[in-house]
Amino acid sequence: MASNQSGIQDWWLQRISAGIIAAYVLLLIVLLLVNGTPTAAQWQALFANNAFKAFTLLALIATFYHGLIGVLHIWPDYIKNAATRATLNALSWLAAAGYALYAVYILFGLK
């Protein structure tokens, strides 16, 4: 992220990931508004579908990446102390990486 000096790469990735997340969120909202609260069986059947599972993983990875780019751009606007900023950056990376591993485990790991 720091390697892209002009920010063009972040700019594009932020919008591409936003498009993926928006499509996924809109799909979920439409499903919930149309069908109402799902039962356990309906909810788990939806996530047992491989296409939906793949879309979920894609949307979640896009979310973690989108959030990571976001917070890495926000910290330097408010945090002037270099050590605090480095700590927040490290925590943000750690959170995003942890989320990604956890999401793979939730969707494809052993139950």
Binding site: W43, F47, T63, F64, G70, I74, A95, Y99, I106
Partner: peptide
């Protein structure tokens, strides 16, 4: 900005809830 930060760190709550809801009927 605030909602973005809240969502990024709110995932700490949301992911375990997703896991719980998918684990079993009892979990749901």
């Amino acid at each position: 900005r605030i909602t973005g930060i809240a969502l990024f760190f709110g995932l700490i709550l949301l992911l375990p809830m997703l896991q719980m809801s998918l684990k079993s009927e009892a979990g749901f």
